[in-house]
Design a protein around this nucleic acid. Sequence first.
DNA 1: GCTTGACCCTCCAGTCACTGGAAGGCCTAT
DNA 2: ATAGGCCTTCCAGTGACTGGAGGGTCAAGC
Lengths: 132, 132
Amino acid sequence: MNIGDVAQAAGLPAKTIRYYEDIGLIAPDRSANGYRRFTAAHLHKLAFIARARGLGFSIEQCRTLLALYEDRDRASADVKALAETHLAEIDAKMRELSEMRRTLADLVHACAGDHRPDCPILTGLAAPVETD
Amino acid sequence: MNIGDVAQAAGLPAKTIRYYEDIGLIAPDRSANGYRRFTAAHLHKLAFIARARGLGFSIEQCRTLLALYEDRDRASADVKALAETHLAEIDAKMRELSEMRRTLADLVHACAGDHRPDCPILTGLAAPVETD
DNA sequence: GCTTGACCCTCCAGTCACTGGAAGGCCTAT
DNA sequence: ATAGGCCTTCCAGTGACTGGAGGGTCAAGC
């Protein structure tokens, strides 16, 4: 398969796959004309990466996951630990976002949103309201 | 005030303030020795930016917010529209994160996390489970 | 045999919002 | 005089791509 085919099948842009090769995540062969040639195993690996990325794992985490995936002697505890680390990262981000959301929603709620210049959003940014 | 003083007061690293000058967010004067010299108004502006960034507004959104803040003829509707746009971005990110979280938590839950190599997290990444 | 268009290649630069570090100048206290 | 803690500029790196220039390859149709 050429890069366009795997890109289609894995749901990744061709550019991204070239990038993954650059950083050593994947190592396709080459045809005589210089085109990258991918096997079903390459595609499988790319789909794996695409799914891991879709769950928010970083490239380095994906690299580790791939290594674990290909290591038949792995302990599932190692995979679980990595996943739990990432879960904690997600939770941290969600808490951060929901704190932002709360504050911002309060400001938006307080703003008339009309033609007048008075705006609690701006005054709130200029000097935050004490909320206790 | 020198940069260290405003950095302290605004809760921003000095490097970040220099960067903000680079991109034209702020324009401090210079002392005879070449040091940046900040007024209380500069500090106020930096604190405004720090708070807007803290709510997740992008630099360009901060630029717009600052312009609105300094425009006495603004309509609060313009500010509100920007804030609502950002609120929608936050909501989109939260939905994305919570979808990730849900899937990942399911996988983690299914994984024994012991010394054995069998791991539903890895098989789930290799071929996603149908969830309907 | 030639052209057209869809592929593919490499390489460089840009994104966002900083952050780190090198190399050096300035200021205050001892 | 020296030590240290400021300050300066400039360059490069982060993560994970993405866009674009400039060019090679291949299959189909005329």
